[in-house]
Amino acid sequence: MRAAFSASRCAGAARTNLVVAARRVQARQLATRAAGGPAAPRTVAGSDSSSSSAQPSWAIKMLYDGDCPLCMREVEMLMRRDAGKGRIEFVDIASPDYAPERNGGITFEQAMERIHAIEADGKVITDVEVFRRLYEEVGLGWVYAITKNKTVEQLANKVYDVWAKYRLPITGRPDLAVVMQQKKTCGPRSQGGQQA
Rank of each mutant, 00 (worst) to 15 (best):
Q29M: 11
A45D: 12
P41W: 07
V25H: 12
A156N: 03
L176S: 04
T171K: 03
P188W: 07
T151Q: 08
A13I: 09
A164D: 09
A120H: 04
V130C: 07
E136C: 12
Y144C: 08
G105D: 12
I93P: 00
L78P: 01
A54D: 12
A164N: 09
T43S: 06
N149T: 15
I93E: 00
A117T: 14
A59T: 10
D97V: 03
T171C: 15
A4R: 15
G172C: 09
A40S: 14
V130S: 01
D127R: 14
A177C: 09
K150A: 13
K85M: 10
R2L: 14
Y64G: 04
Q182R: 12
E76M: 11
G187E: 07
A94C: 10
P100K: 06
G139R: 01
I93R: 02
I115T: 10
R23C: 08
E129V: 14
W163N: 09
R80N: 07
L63E: 00
P38W: 04
A117N: 09
L18E: 06
R23K: 06
V124I: 15
I60C: 02
E76I: 13
I60T: 12
R73S: 13
A120S: 13
Q195F: 04
A120N: 00
R81E: 06
R80S: 12
P169I: 06
G193C: 02
I170G: 03
P38M: 10
C71A: 11
Q194A: 09
